[in-house]
Write a protein that binds this DNA or RNA. Structure first.
Lengths: 342, 342
DNA sequence: TTGTAAGCGTTATCAG
DNA sequence: CTGATAACGCTTACAA
């Protein structure tokens, strides 16, 4: 099973390898009929240019590395789909590696990809953003990196992020406007900037509506359903059930709803619940889950575009793109549906 | 930002490139202290062997291609995680491409990966298995390919598959044993072998228990929640609601449950429902969903092992590994919990 | 328009 | 044990 090489084709046609090479890269002058002949026989012989050799000689790989915190997460699945669609169309391969929400693994992934000569990286950092110094260095060295989500304004270089604060604010206001008394926020891990931003939005809404501190709470939950459940169990244990809960994401919200129901609380009648980062499940559960939807696909694509710009032009300026979303109100958060919120 | 190369290191230490190369590949003789010196200075200089060059000169890429039908699916997320874990540990990179449940895209993906000189492929074919002839050819040519899921016994080469028929049979029997009268199966796309196998298991259970044909039905739904919903709507429209439904997967089951509830049917009291291929959601919804669990992680890992065997030994015999699972009974399928099924 | 030959960063063969 | 040097398959000045 030998690979057919450029030499074989050249020999067969009694031309030089450069001619064959040129036939495959139309930026050089070459007579039209020789080109066609070469392309035709090459095809017959089953010749495919060897990308590895190409990479070596061109010193670029046409590969883009994508590093995500975890793959078992609809959000990042969608990111990968979007990135792949766009980048393959642009002639790049997409190499995906996942860090399992672990900073060290993330650094390993990034190094592996850099060693494999990816032309650029799109990174959604893990909780804690522990490798920012390393990234800052690379970016200063001129290595094309674009961050997606999971970083804030202060991150170096280009990035595409979601306006978490704003939409967290809206989601919270929706609860406040129903005159609910006690509103709790189940936040993500506190060392994630995304969590912090959502917390800020929550607080801002509380301040704007002059809700006193006794009437709201911010509780660190996490990102998983189990973590939402645990917090609820804890609250039940302390007889401290709020009128509404705004959760850092849908998974935590679904966990919370499950445990509430298991314990005889009705959603939304007893406790209204709102999620974030709409998953496919939001519409499938009952009650259907109110949630903030991010333009995941567009965000990823934007990140891809930005990255290509950096790859193609060393001096392209760093850009920060902040995107907005949508808040979809469904049953889980509307206590009194006659009030016109649905 | 020039890459430091083996030459730079050699020059710095006044040794030859081969010596440096040898220092990094311990299969050759080299004096211990020179080796250590080389390694040390190489590190200082920030040298990393360039995998691309390595690939070119060794004529292998240390890359494995993985082609999956869709990524926005927990099952395949888990597959990727497992494969990555195992293969990275073995010194390989994992390139993932998704076919979006489209045979042509799948073929493109496979060709791209082959052109990129992956050392082998793990493929979970899309619905219809339309590219089997192409794969058969490659396999005959000696190209290492292992199929995962989505194929049946008849597929060429090595494969790791799930015993769908058997576990579909068990799940169906669980419903029959509750003396439910009318049991319907919401199947996957009929041109998927996985669907066919699950249908076979369902039928086998019906035959064994001598259920007459008027009392069961097999309805093609698909793989998505929406498709489960549609079928339910149709049944409601025809006043044809069964006592139990066995669904091809959890997503269809969740869709079905949702629509049933929306229309005032209670699950499991009115209609018992069973899913397949346990997702994280199975435990989160109410009622919790009975489902068959596949050993996804192990299946993927096995596929990885098989592939490496083929890569390392051209003459390794093709193997077919059929794996078994677990059936977890939860509330959604137990009409009378006092009967001891829970 | 085409050919020659150097180079991309490694490994591997063969002398020494 | 170490050094030259020819591959690996392709691109790209430079010549012709």
């Amino acid at each position: 099973m030998k690979h057919v090489t450029i030499k074989d084709v050249a020999k067969r046609l009694n031309v030089s390898v450069s001619t064959v090479s040129r036939a495959f890269n139309d930026k050089y002058d070459i007579r039209k009929d020789t080109k066609e002949l070469i392309l035709k026989t090459a095809k017959e012989m089953g010749y495919h240019p060897n990308p590895i050799a190409k990479k070596l000689s061109q010193n670029r790989s046409l590969n883009i590395g994508v590093v995500i915190p975890e793959i078992i997460n609809e959000y990042y699945s969608e990111v990968i789909i979007a990135l792949q669609e766009f980048l393959i169309y642009k002639g790049y391969q997409v190499l995906v590696m996942q860090s399992d929400e672990n900073g060290e693994q993330e650094l390993k992934n990034v190094k592996t990809l850099i060693n494999n000569m990816v032309d650029g990286l799109i990174i959604a950092p893990t909780t804690g953003n522990s490798n920012m110094d390393f990234y800052r260095q690379r970016i200063n060295d001129g290595y094309p990196i674009v961050f997606l989500n999971r970083v804030d304004d202060s991150a170096p270089g280009s990035k595409v992020i979601f306006n978490n604060e704003k939409w967290s604010f809206f989601a919270t206001e929706h609860l406040i406007r129903q005159n609910l008394n006690k509103i709790y926020h189940f936040s993500g891990y506190l060392d994630m900037c995304v969590s912090q931003e959502r917390i800020q939005g929550f607080k801002k809404a509380m301040n704007k509506h002059k809700i006193s501190k006794e009437n709201y709470k911010i509780i660190e939950a996490g990102l998983l359903p189990e973590e939402g459940m645990e917090v609820i169990e804890d609250l039940i244990f302390h007889h401290d059930i709020p009128d509404a809960i705004f959760c850092v994401n849908d998974m935590v919200a679904l966990g919370a709803i499950k445990k509430l129901k298991d314990n005889g609380y009705r959603v939304p009648e007893d406790v209204a619940v709102v999620g974030f980062t709409e998953t496919r499940m939001a519409e499938l559960v009952s009650p259907q889950l109110s949630s903030v939807k991010q333009p995941t696909y567009d965000m990823a694509k934007k990140a891809g575009e930005l990255l290509l710009r950096h790859i193609e032009d060393e001096n392209a300026p760093a850009e920060t793109i902040i995107m907005n979303g949508e808040f979809t109100i469904r049953k889980s958060s509307v206590k009194n549906s006659s009030a016109g919120y649905l």
